[in-house]
């Protein structure tokens, strides 16, 4: 069964009378445990696709089934719950709360959780240790380097044990050493059974994933999965 099933998704913005179509009829299916990269030049619609996938934004038309649930039908409360429980976000700009310690940033999703687990702090500490940040628990984002902030973000994305990790240019703001570290973390997460969607324009990063989807002008230009299947069929 597909964990993510997007059928004919369109998204357009209306700006001073002009309609900009960012996504045009995108159909994309992702299975549980998939490791997929979405590539494309800037302005192609990658981030918009991720926003819809992460329930941060609603499509203008089309059908999006997440874990068998039609997202377009959900109200704000249920949509927020989906974001809280099923999805972990890793952003290029980190998006940590300023002035709040690493530990509290990691705990943040549980503040909004319907049934938060018991030993919240212990769990947050473990996750920070997992990304090698056990020595920086009480530092605020301003006191951390970019690589460290990204690791805190990854720990935060994992705190509520989501099935999907959506990472938008996770290495975009990092030097190559930190970038490699980050990608290693993702590689390990796949082994733990998480479904990972990477948005990137860096081919080297994209190649960590088993499947690469290219987007151009709001449409899927190529999908390595289909090509393989296609080649299998052509054989």
């Amino acid at each position: 069964m597909n964990l993510i099933e997007m059928n004919s998704i369109c998204k357009s913005y209306r700006n001073i009378g002009f309609e900009t179509r960012v996504l045009k009829d995108v159909t994309l299916h992702i299975e549980e445990g998939d490791y997929i990269s979405i590539m494309g030049p800037s302005g192609a619609g990658k981030s918009t696709l991720m926003a819809i996938m992460g329930c941060l934004s609603q499509p203008s038309s089309g059908e999006y089934l997440l874990d068998g649930e039609e997202v377009g039908q959900l109200n704000d409360r249920k949509l927020s719950r989906v974001r809280n429980e099923k999805i972990g976000f890793v952003f290029q700009a980190f998006h940590l709360l300023p002035g709040v310690t690493a530990l509290e940033n990691v705990i943040l999703p549980l503040v909004y959780a319907k049934r938060p687990p018991g030993n919240i702090k212990e769990r947050a500490r473990e996750l920070l240790a997992k990304v090698g940040m056990e020595h920086r628990l009480h530092h605020t984002p301003g006191q951390l380097s970019g690589g460290e902030q990204q690791r805190v973000t990854i720990a935060r994305s994992l705190i509520n044990d989501p099935r999907i990790i959506l990472a938008d240019e996770p290495t975009g703001n990092l030097d190559s050493k930190n970038g490699i570290e980050t990608m290693k973390t993702f590689d390990n997460l796949v082994k733990e059974g998480k479904t990972i969607v990477l948005i990137t324009h860096d081919l080297e990063v994209a190649q960590h994933a088993g499947r690469i989807v290219s987007i151009r002008d709001g449409q899927i230009a190529s999908d390595s999965d289909h090509e393989e299947r296609g080649s299998i069929h052509s054989l």
Binding site: D76, R83, P109, V111, Y112
Partner: peptide
């Protein structure tokens, strides 16, 4: 605004 965005992304409802 950004803080609101972050909170919404990790699961805060409008009500929250």
């Amino acid at each position: 605004t950004r803080e609101i965005g972050i909170r919404r992304a990790v699961g805060a409802t409008r009500r929250d």
